[in-house]
């Protein structure tokens, strides 16, 4: 099959239309993807942002040819996922959540093996392994078994292993989950370098900040569907970079403060006395908000500035908390309390 229409017209490297997938059998059959539409343009970074169970990994597994969708179509690097899986595989790389390197091989051996499996000639494979070790700051550790590496080093090596062939499209499934802040920063640097060299990146993450740092476009995935899409700046503008949180003594006070600040009156439950309002995080902005509170004559018991959680994003952009299962006709949405790393 030749390059498809979508690719011929514009520089589209991933196009998914109506992807559906369910796991399990019979009555226990659980839909995971409920009609996902996505587009990734050449040279672009798209972040699929959502909580655990939203369908991020399933989307990546489908687009990287590991599992076939129940319904829907997708082209990757110009080829149909199902009919031309072999050609898609020559043009992509997948770095999953679980590190795909052998702890009992050295860093160099792991990369060399991957380069050989990508069918680089011996000498080229050796050269490429050394080049990647250098680029990922692993040359000093190249001869050590990976079992002795730190978590951050393993992730870097894993990423390098996915780059032996300079793929057209790279899939990165939650690249920094479980890393400490410093390793996370280092990982972001590495990913930016990779993108700068022309690889289109399809990224999944549960961290709002990560999407903000790396992505040109963010797609919010919620209950097996893309709930909202846009540039991170747009997203942040709507959510607010920082939230001012005010805990009041009574629900009446909370209602008054909320009205004065022009935000929705908090609903019942444990949170009914807490008012949250978006701010740009500057001193002037916060001062103005606090002045507004003062004018009501109500004294908050406590106030706090915090970065938005994934929940805040979903609440603001979709009007409801993030759900882990596709919107069914019945049943309550599952609430998520996953914190977004600051």
């Amino acid at each position: 099959m030749n390059r498809t229409q979508a690719d011929r017209g514009r520089d589209v490297v991933v196009q998914a239309v109506g992807l559906r997938k369910a796991y399990g059998r019979g009555r226990e059959r659980l839909p995971v993807l409920d009609g996902v539409d996505l587009t990734l343009h050449r040279g672009e970074v798209l972040a699929l942002l959502g909580p655990n169970g939203a369908g991020k990994t399933t989307t990546v597994r489908i687009l990287s040819t590991l599992v076939a969708p129940d319904a829907g179509r997708a082209t990757v690097a110009g080829f149909d996922l199902v009919r031309d899986a072999a050609r898609v595989r020559e043009r992509i790389s997948l770095t999953g959540q679980q590190v795909a390197i052998d702890l009992k091989q050295t860093g160099r051996e792991n990369l060399w093996m991957m380069a050989r499996l990508a069918h680089l000639p011996r000498r080229a494979a050796r050269a490429r392994a050394d080049e990647l070790l250098e680029a990922f700051d692993l040359t000093a550790a190249a001869g050590r078994q990976v079992g002795t590496y730190s978590g951050g080093m393993r992730r870097r090596l894993d990423l390098a292993a996915g780059l032996v062939t300079r793929p057209e499209v790279m899939f990165l499934d939650e690249p920094t989950t479980g890393l400490d802040p410093r390793s996370r920063q280092a990982m972001w640097e590495v990913v930016r370098d990779v993108v700068a060299q022309g690889t289109s990146l399809f990224l999944t993450t549960q961290y709002l900040e990560e999407a903000d740092q790396l992505a040109d476009r963010v797609a919010l995935i919620d209950g097996g569907r893309v709930a909202a899409e846009g540039a991170p700046a747009e997203l942040k503008r709507r959510v607010g970079q920082v939230r001012l949180e005010l805990e009041l003594a009574t629900t009446d006070d909370a209602g008054r403060v909320a009205a004065a600040l022009g935000v929705p009156v908090p609903e019942g439950g444990a949170d009914a006395r807490t008012v949250r309002v978006a701010t740009d995080g500057t001193l002037a902005g916060v001062r103005e908000l606090l002045a507004g509170v003062e004018r009501t004559g109500v004294a908050p018991r406590r106030w706090d500035l915090r970065t938005p959680t994934l929940d805040d994003v979903f609440l603001t952009l979709t009007g409801h908390a993030a759900r882990t299962e596709p919107r069914p006709g019945t049943g309550e949405p599952t609430r998520h309390t996953e914190e977004v790393a600051a």
Binding site: R61, L66, S93, G96, Q97, Q98, A100, M114, L117, A118
Partner: peptide, 13 residues
């Protein structure tokens, strides 16, 4: 159970 098989399956191996 690790990530190795997934990666190999996403390659032309």
């Amino acid at each position: 159970s690790g990530g190795m098989i997934d990666r190999l399956r996403s390659m032309p191996v």
